[in-house]
């Protein structure tokens, strides 16, 4: 049976179609068009109705609120996210390393979240930054932590009548920050592993420390327990605590394939970031 395909010109129209037909959203199409392709000369066939929202212009703004919260519309593409000075560094860095130039002009942040692939690149830094997703339905809006929205590999808490309309990143500051994606090649490389981390010093002590591991489990991994081990410590105390911290982070990982490689590489990257930050270098970005 051939399912219906709708094209929505506004968010309101898309929400009505979604509510009435249960249509799945097609935004950039870079996941869906590959998944349901039929081959040359044949249009893709979907096992469910689809609503194309690519032309809903109200969903692609990137704005900053008075309190410093940054809101990224669901249709914003990686090329624009990577260029926006409003967006915090780890998210820009992740966007800049997605796919190849053409993919970065088509893929959307909403699709990257909606797809909930453990290898998706944007949820990882967003979860480190305590980003929230804005879910819109005809009944209104609700917001939840992205970390709670993504339930596992390919699973989200999206309701049948909802569309992801935006992502909100609360204000954040750091003394040092890190982002690394390890892929197989330069372009169109799906992440084998990725890591973000940040550290903020206040009066000689670690006031904030966070990290997030991508492609190391069914969803992005953050261990607040491990993070807390470093908070409040001065440089010497942090150096002494480092091995225990690294063990605790390692405990939290659950890599599916190549577990030893992923564990060792994550450990080395975290150790590199933390020891570098404890040297208090000039540049806030640790590479």
């Amino acid at each position: 049976m051939v399912e219906r395909c709708y094209v929505a010109a506004s968010l309101d129209e898309a929400l009505k179609i979604r509510k009435e037909t249960g249509a799945h959203v097609l935004a950039g199409g870079t996941d869906l068009m590959v998944q349901f392709r039929q081959g040359t000369g044949i249009s893709p066939v979907f096992p469910f109705p689809v609503v194309i929202i690519s032309s809903v212009r109200e969903l692609d703004d990137i704005t900053a609120g008075d309190d410093g919260t940054v809101t990224i519309g669901a249709l914003a593409v990686p090329a624009r996210i990577a260029e926006s000075q409003l967006v915090p560094y780890p998210v820009r860095a992740a966007a800049a390393r997605m796919g190849a130039p053409a993919l970065r002009n088509s893929a959307t942040i909403g699709g990257n979240i909606g797809n909930a692939s453990p290898k998706g690149d944007l949820p990882q830094p967003l979860i480190m930054l305590d980003a929230r997703v804005v879910l819109t339905s005809l009944d209104g809006e609700r917001e939840m932590l992205l970390d709670d929205f993504i339930l596992g590999s390919k699973k989200t808490a999206l309701r049948d009548d909802e569309i992801i309309s935006a992502v909100r990143i609360p204000p954040v500051s750091w003394s040092y920050v890190f982002y690394r994606k390890i892929g197989t090649r330069r372009a169109n490389a799906i992440s084998k592993l990725s890591l973000s981390a940040l550290m903020r010093f206040e009066d000689g002590r670690i006031a904030d420390f966070r990290a997030a591991s991508g492609a190391s489990g069914p969803k992005v991994i953050r261990s607040r327990e491990a993070e807390n081990m470093l908070k409040g410590l001065d440089d010497a105390e942090a150096r002494a605590e480092l091995p225990a911290f690294l063990d605790a982070w390692n405990e939290a990982l659950s890599p599916h394939a190549m577990p030893q490689y992923r564990r060792n590489t994550t450990r080395r990257m975290l150790e590199h970031f933390i020891t570098s930050a404890l040297e208090h270098p000039q540049s806030e970005i640790i590479v």
Partner: peptide
């Protein structure tokens, strides 16, 4: 190859 016609308005 990734863009459906309905996205082009």
């Amino acid at each position: 190859c990734l863009i459906p016609m309905g996205a082009l308005a």
